[in-house]
């Protein structure tokens, strides 16, 4: 029931997560609409991809769902940040590396809706803005960097760390831009952006580093104990003709 640990939970999440998701009602209507308008085309493309994947590979549906649940639970974990406070990982950088940006976007959307509906983290009016920063911009950058690193033959450890950490940082920069556009300061948008970014830097840069390290550790754990399981995820990335056989052969 509602006990003291609940208070402790709320006190700790203030450090990162609530700040990271823009609160319900925090943005005026016009900016809510702008970010919905920017997110929806990307999400439609994501749904299109998802429909194609699930039609070709029937196993993909439960797999995607369980991955979504995984991301939700990851984002509910307490991540010890470098500055001594603890905060919550976004999980979207990891999702981008695992599943590619289109699927990561859709899963982030669902996770954000559930966070709003089950705990009032984020909100429905700010959903568009939050999806854009956490589910679209972050994963897009993370995935691009991950792809670039794959080509360079550098150690995948550095690749994963950079991809996840920068994906987090992108989320935080985009959120700062979103807030700066909605809340003007003397000296223009840039001044407002600097104000927000400065506040976020305190919690989000250490968090990005911590989440990068966490992602590296998760990856090495998975590679060590269940290397073949990662190949299963290729199902989600490339729904070409041969994946069906791949699934059947496993």
């Amino acid at each position: 029931m509602l006990n003291k640990s609940l208070y402790a939970y709320w006190l700790t999440i203030q450090q990162g997560e609530i700040i990271m998701h823009i609160m319900e009602g925090f943005l005026p209507l016009e900016w809510c609409l702008v970010w919905f308008a920017l997110s929806i085309p990307v999400l439609i493309y994501g749904v299109y991809r998802l429909t194609k994947i699930t039609k070709k590979v029937p196993e993909a549906k439960p797999l995607l769902a369980l991955m979504g649940a995984f991301i939700f639970v990851i984002s509910a974990l307490k991540l010890p940040s470098v500055v001594g406070s603890s905060s919550h990982p976004t999980g979207s950088g990891l999702a981008a590396v695992f599943f590619g940006p289109a699927v990561a976007g859709i899963l982030s959307l669902i996770v954000l809706v559930f966070q709003a509906l089950l705990l009032a983290h984020g909100g429905l009016t700010t959903l568009g803005a939050n999806v854009f920063s956490m589910g679209i911009a972050g994963p897009a950058i993370g995935f691009t960097i991950w792809m670039l690193f794959k080509r360079t033959k550098l150690s995948p450890t550095i690749g994963i760390f950079t991809a996840v950490a920068l994906s987090d940082l992108t989320t935080y920069i985009v959120t700062s831009i979103q807030l700066a556009l909605a809340f003007p300061a003397e000296g223009g948008i840039l001044a407002a952006f600097t104000n927000f970014a400065a506040i976020y830097a305190v919690t989000q840069i250490p968090l990005a580093i911590a989440e990068g390290i966490l992602a590296v550790l998760i990856f090495s754990f998975l590679a060590k104990y269940k290397g073949n399981i990662l190949s299963l995820l290729k199902v989600l990335k490339s729904p070409v003709s041969n994946t069906t056989q791949e699934v059947e052969s496993q």
Binding site: V47, L50, K61, P62, L64, A69, I106
Partner: peptide, 8 residues
């Protein structure tokens, strides 16, 4: 989207 959400 709905089916996946329900499973999640």
């Amino acid at each position: 989207l709905l089916e996946i959400s329900l499973l999640i």
